[in-house]
Amino acid sequence: MALTNEILKQKLSDKFGEQLTEWDEQYGLLTVRMPAEANLKVIQHLYDAEGFQFLTDLTAVHYPERTGEELCVVYHLHNLVENIRLRLKVYVPVEKPDVYTATKIFSGANWMERETYDNLGINFVGHPNLTRILNVDEMDYFPLRKEYQMEDPTRLDKDDEMFGRGGSI
């Protein structure tokens, strides 16, 4: 029997019970939130038992207004055999953005996690080489967080008012 969102949801609820919350199914993609300390357990179970052996994407989102859970790490897993996708979310506070690394399960997670660290400052615990990858090594902030502006803050060459960029566009 083909794996569908309903069956998968049932199976995961049976296995993990209350740990998985905020079930959602926008545009046909099953989404679930898992606690930060259990993320590897869930992913490993999905890898071993449910055939989600392909990590499509890993990224993070910054929600400054969600106090206590500002950063959200998003995993997109794919079961290539059943051809079904799953989105997993982990929320962590911005003061202590610790998430366990998925590099032990997926080799491909290595750079994706480094990129996420580089842009949003998620601390992937256990990552073999969690250093900046895209930005210059000297950078001392995480530029994709919402409080930082797009333009270089030290820039002097362009007058913001002349370019209509003084506001919050």
Partner: peptide, 8 residues
């Protein structure tokens, strides 16, 4: 690319 990593 009027952004922080790009040389203007």
């Amino acid at each position: 690319f009027d952004s922080y990593p790009v040389l203007q």
